[in-house]
C-alpha cells in the first residue's frame, strides 16, 4: 500500500458517500474481492453521477477517487475499501473520512485514505489525469496544469501504512515471522 507516486484518472464525488453506495449489503455474503470489485459504487445515484464508476463490462478507469467530506460513512464493512481496491482504485482523496472506513483502509493495508486540506471536487473533474506524490510533502497535482494541492501527512498511522497494514505491523511487534 505504501507508494511514492500514483498517477491515473480521477472519479469525483461529493459529501457523505456511504458504505451502502460503495458496496451494497446485498453483496455482503462474500469477501471475494473480485466479486466485490464488480459492484463498487453500484448504488451511487445515477441522477447525480452521470458518468458511471464502472464500465458496462465491470472494468474501471479510475485509480483515484476525489471526495469532499465524510467519505465512507455508515457501516463497518471492510468490504468497502476492498471493493474499491479490487476495482482498481489505489487512493481516495477527501477532506474528511468516516472513521471506520479510514481505519479499515489503513489497518487492512488496502487503499490509501488521503486527507486534502482544500475541497478538490471543484478543482478536478471525473476523467482528469492527476498525479499524487507522497515523497516529502504530499501533494496531488493535475498532469495538465501542473497546479499542486497539499495532502496532509499521515501522522501516527504512518508506521502501520508502511508496514502494509495492522497485521504485518502487529506481527513485527510480536516477533512473529
Amino acid at each position: 500500500m505504501s507508494r511514492e507516486t500514483i498517477r491515473g484518472r480521477v472519479y469525483v464525488v461529493g459529501d457523505n458517500i456511504d458504505t451502502d453506495a460503495i458496496i451494497p449489503a446485498r453483496y455482503m455474503s462474500t469477501m471475494d474481492a473480485s466479486v466485490l470489485g464488480k459492484h463498487a459504487m453500484e448504488d451511487l445515484d445515477p441522477n447525480q453521477y452521470k458518468i458511471p464508476f464502472l464500465n458496462p463490462d465491470g472494468s474501471c478507469d479510475y485509480k483515484i477517487v476525489i471526495a469532499r467530506r465524510n467519505f465512507g460513512c455508515g457501516s463497518s464493512r471492510e468490504h468497502a475499501p476492498i471493493a474499491l481496491r479490487a476495482a482498481g482504485v489505489e487512493a481516495v482523496v477527501a477532506q474528511t473520512f468516516a472513521r471506520i472506513y479510514y481505519r479499515n483502509s489503513v489497518n487492512g493495508g488496502i487503499i490509501l485514505p488521503l486527507e486534502s486540506t482544500l475541497d478538490l471536487t471543484d478543482v478536478f473533474k471525473t476523467g482528469d489525469e492527476v498525479e499524487i506524490d507522497l515523497r516529502s510533502l504530499p501533494i496531488i497535482q493535475s498532469c495538465v496544469k501542473r497546479q499542486a494541492y497539499p495532502i496532509k501527512p499521515f501522522g501516527p498511522v504512518k508506521d502501520i501504512i508502511e508496514a502494509g497494514g495492522l497485521t504485518a505491523y502487529n506481527k513485527k511487534i510480536l516477533g512473529i515471522a
Binding site: M31, S76, R77, E78, I100, R103, N104, N107, G108, G109, P156, I160, G165, L166, T167, N170, L174
Partner: peptide
C-alpha cells in the same frame, strides 16, 4: 466502538487495539 475485519482479527490475537 465499531471496527473492521482486519482490526477484529488483530484484537483476537493481541487483546488490544490502537485508538486516537
Amino acid at each position: 466502538t465499531g471496527i473492521g475485519t482486519t482490526e477484529a482479527g488483530n484484537v483476537l490475537a493481541t487483546g488490544s487495539l490502537w485508538f486516537r
